[in-house]
Design a protein around this nucleic acid. Structure first.
Lengths: 353, 353
DNA sequence: CGGTGTCATGTTTACGTAAACATGACTGCC
DNA sequence: GGCAGTCATGTTTACGTAAACATGACACCG
């Protein structure tokens, strides 16, 4: 059973002085155990050189008083916080939340906690505010899940010597970057459609400001050009299923369009809906490929062929790269790409003759 | 433009001693400005009683040295961290990530940062570990997004006087609880189907250990009983679309089943797929209602009628309730329910005659 | 012109921890 | 039996900040 003692009132008179001690310190434990506070510290940290009987007395005193180490004092002493900051715009994007989860899990395994620093909207003020606060935050390093060009728009100065790792961006010349191999994933998607026999592939891209949207779009274009195929006009959405639906209606109106590569699964879902409403059968008449491989993609109608991203691996590598910096191991700017793989389901097929 | 100075090497010789100072402290600023460190403190905190010329000297020295307050020292001094811990199993559930996002945003507005404390799997060891760590964490209070009965299984002791708020649980007798009004949402869903003329409603519930799954299921049962309708056997899934698909195949095999209430949208998606594969038309032959109103629900085939949860409001109220505790304002156990509303789309209709 | 106030600024101290150094007891060796 | 060495434990100090108290300069008053 969980045991929780009722919160004591601030004004209680546990202590003769009338004001109770807010917190149990090593000195309190030391007093009760009849040793010095340094001995308590040694016990708390498992340092050698404490005789078994003494150790037991101290442990008994600790549990009697309910001693908990004060991490503020520890951090002050060590100059480290054992905490990583994660700056992001929002968790609403599925990729972000999965990356953050992986970061949190992996960081916890390494003894680090995660502090979330959300910036509400990509306005200069908000970004600036997040960074100003960051300087004061109890953080040993920062992972940016944010389009760096948005930071560029804000005149922001990171504290010199700040440890930074960037996700999903093109800042590889200035910071270590960890990212999904967007270009290769997009190439796999487009080649898959061409291999099936489609003459060319339409693309529904993400918003113009997004790095990953640009990467996926340019890889799409490149594959088509290399294969000597015509490059249809680009459609743009905002990652949402609704925007995919609207673009899908436009694409459905073009009878020559038999293959669509959507820049994420949600937009692909919208495309599927639009094609269905317009009576264009998937995959018989039109093939659709997504990107991300969200948990639900296998349950779309039809189950979606898509590019699987390993968000967990991205999070893991972010933490590793950041910890390497924090521990002063060699690491400079450069981009670490995580492989993708195409998951073929039922939304793609050879075109009807 | 973002400006970042290259991280200096630990062994640099900025300082005659050979070891550079890790960080700029108030004392350094004070030395440069020719004042005492206390005056620097006064400037930093905007305390009155500093003459304009002095203030300017100090500010100049601060920016020259790139001074940043040390939050560890601040926390030690004040006994507060301005940080809220969030303990959860995972962000993969859509509701969780949206709640966390709202918590982070609202907390930031109140000057608090968020520390994520993930517990990998609901095992005793993991939960215990999270709480043991929590005692050492730099946190003023904790929001639990976790099934409390899982905590009960682990013999865990929260530090006395710990500030706690619980989401999505039945611990209202012991802690303040903030939650979506699960029961009312489920009632709206079931009544909607009955009002359309369905004789009864099948239910695809979430996993047995989940509080919200139980709440939704018992509200479903209650509405049927009150209306004097037969209560079909309960199907169970694990929240995933796949589990919804499997349950959907079973339900599709029963020709008397014309109305299904799935405990979340993802399972509803799986049900839609199963019905489609079995050739049962939605909503003409079978009506389906979900729960959550995820962003994509309007793009399912057909667009899903579902119960909208206001995750942002849940997050906001959690933070408010926790800050109230931290600031010693009156607040005891009890449950604060956030209203839901039924969003009618195209997956429900009157049964065919 | 001395006394009293006011105000800007400096000095001391405490927050909780742990490294570095100090002490004192006991062991073992010649 | 005395001395070096080892080992458990105690004492001092520093980490960066800010409250509490102290100081010293100047102004205004009778």
């Amino acid at each position: 059973m969980i045991k929780i003692e009722p919160p004591r009132l601030r004004a209680s008179s546990d202590v003769p002085g009338g004001r109770r001690k807010q917190r149990v310190s090593m000195a309190d434990v030391a007093r009760l155990a009849g040793v010095s506070s340094q001995t308590v510290s040694r016990v708390a940290n498992g340092s050698p050189g404490v005789v078994e009987t003494t150790r037991e007395q101290v442990l008994a005193a600790m549990s009697e008083l309910g001693y908990r180490p004060n991490s503020a004092a520890r951090s002050l002493r060590y100059g480290r916080f054992n905490t990583i900051g994660v700056i992001l715009f929002g968790l609403s994007s599925i990729g972000n939340s999965r990356t953050v989860e992986a970061i949190a899990t992996h960081a916890a395994a390494e003894g680090y906690a995660i502090t979330l620093i959300p910036v509400g909207a990509p306005t200069q003020d908000n970004v600036l505010g997040a960074f100003t606060r960051m300087g004061e935050l109890a953080v040993d390093g920062v992972i940016l899940i944010i389009e760096v060009h948005l930071l560029d728009a804000a005149a922001v100065t990171l504290p010199p010597g700040a440890h930074v790792v960037v996700v999903d961006s093109d800042a590889g010349d200035r910071y270590p970057v960890v990212d999904t191999d967007q270009a290769d994933g997009a190439r796999q998607a487009v080649r898959h459609l061409l291999d099936l026999g489609h003459h060319t592939v339409w693309h529904l891209a993400g918003p113009a400001g997004s790095f990953s949207a640009e990467r996926r779009a340019s890889a799409w274009r490149q594959v088509l050009e290399e294969a000597g195929r015509p490059v249809p006009a680009l459609e743009r959405g905002d990652w949402s299923a609704d925007s995919g639906y609207r673009a899908g209606l436009r694409l459905a109106a073009d009878p020559s369009c038999t293959a669509i590569f959507a820049a994420n699964d949600q937009m692909a879902l919208g495309v599927l809906r639009a094609l269905h409403e317009r009576g264009r059968r998937v995959p018989e008449e039109v093939s659709v490929v997504g990107f991300d491989d969200v948990a639900d993609a296998g349950s779309y109608l039809p189950p979606l062929t898509t590019v699987h991203q390993d968000f967990a691996e991205v999070g893991r590598r972010c933490v590793d790269a950041l910890l390497r910096q924090i521990h002063d191991e060699p690491s400079g700017p450069g981009t670490d790409l995580v492989a993708t793989r195409l998951v073929v389901r039922a939304s793609t097929a050879a075109p009807e003759v």
